[in-house]
Amino acid sequence: MMARIHISPKPDILDPQGKAVNSALHDLGYREVSEVRVGRYITLEIQPQPGQDSRARLEEMCRRLLANINVETYTIEIHEG
C-alpha cells in the first residue's frame, strides 16, 4: 500500500517561508494571493506485516519523526493496492 502524508504549519503559527513566498508572488504581480503556507508532501510505500495497524504506525512515524508536532500538523491518506 501507499501512504501520502501532508505536513503543514499549524494554522496559528508564524510561517516565515510562507510569508516570503507570499511577498515574492506579490512582487511578480500576483496580487490576488494571500495567506501562503508552505508545508511538505511525503509518500511512502508500505508492506504491512501481519497484525500491524498501518494507520497507527504512520501516526507514530509522523509524531516521532516526519512532522514537528510542536509547530506542524499532518494528514495521512492511505491508498490500498
Binding site: 499549524k10 494554522p11 496559528d12 508564524l14 516565515p16 508536532i69 510542536n70 509547530v71 500538523t73
Partner: peptide, 8 residues
C-alpha cells in the same frame, strides 16, 4: 493539537 505555545 491546533494550538501552539511555541514561537517561531
Amino acid at each position: 493539537a491546533k494550538r501552539s505555545s511555541v514561537q517561531v
